[in-house]
Nucleic acid binder design. Structure first.
Length: 214
DNA sequence: CCATTAATAGGCG
DNA sequence: CGCCTATTAATGG
């Protein structure tokens, strides 16, 4: 498959309102189409990688590992999504893992290069800021849900979000159920039971990773 | 196929 | 609800 850097960058939502001219400026400072097979680690603590990444193809999960060796899924990246914008501004130590859920192609931009460009490109800064805001809302929403909603409510809320986002009552789960459970802050067992309960109550229909909202 | 991982089930605190 | 264990299903080589 041929790869156009411009097209690739355009797909990244943080850059999607930028004129082509500006995107072209990004091309020379970006690395394109690094390939990560399904299950491989894209980023991890101590890998020395510095900068942001975005997904050209595939999907990935962001997670951290606590003292007990258990992982908490913090978020999902889908095609066109970006992560690590913070790294463009501050010298961060990578504290999370990012793992490819499918065969994934990743493009990236280094902080140093980006900062220079940012200084001459105010529109870029604006877009980035908006993107930050969105992510903040998502993270906050999930955080609030974890604190104030019970397991079943969180599951339903999540399913509704996804339905809205995918524009259909038929939902395709990108995450394994154990990862989804982690993301929702519950155990896989509880997720499994609640889903079954919801199905029994005729609120959803489950077939594997496909769930239909009724 | 076999081996490993994921999902479900049931019991218990 | 989470944790533990057992069983079954799915996945990958």
């Amino acid at each position: 498959m041929t790869h156009s850097p411009v097209a690739c960058i355009s797909k990244a939502t943080i850059f999607n309102n930028l004129p082509v001219k500006m995107i072209e400026k990004l091309v020379p400072i970006s690395t394109h189409q690094e390939y990560f097979p399904k299950g491989s680690i894209i980023r991890q603590p101590g890998d020395g990688k510095d900068g942001m990444i975005f997904l050209d193809q595939g999907s990935a999960k962001i997670y951290s590992i606590n003292e007990d060796g258990k992982e908490t899924v913090l978020g999902i990246l889908n095609k066109g999504d970006a992560d690590g914008q913070q790294n463009l501004f501050r010298d961060n130590i990578q504290e999370n893992f990012i793992e490819a859920l499918q065969d994934t192609y990743v493009c990236s931009i280094e902080r140093q290069d980006f900062q220079k460009l940012l200084k001459r490109t105010p529109d870029l800064a604006l877009n980035l800021l908006n993107s930050f805001g969105e992510q903040l809302v998502i993270i906050e929403t999930n955080s609030i849900r974890r604190n104030s909603m019970n397991a079943q409510e969180r599951i339903v809320a999540y399913l509704k979000d996804l339905s809205k986002k995918q524009g259909s009552n038929v939902i395709e789960l990108k995450l394994k159920k154990k990862d989804l459970a982690s993301y929702l802050g519950i155990t896989p067992e509880t997720l499994s039971r609640k889903l079954k309960k919801l199905q029994k109550e005729n609120r959803i229909k489950i077939s594997g990773r496909r769930i239909i909202l009724l």
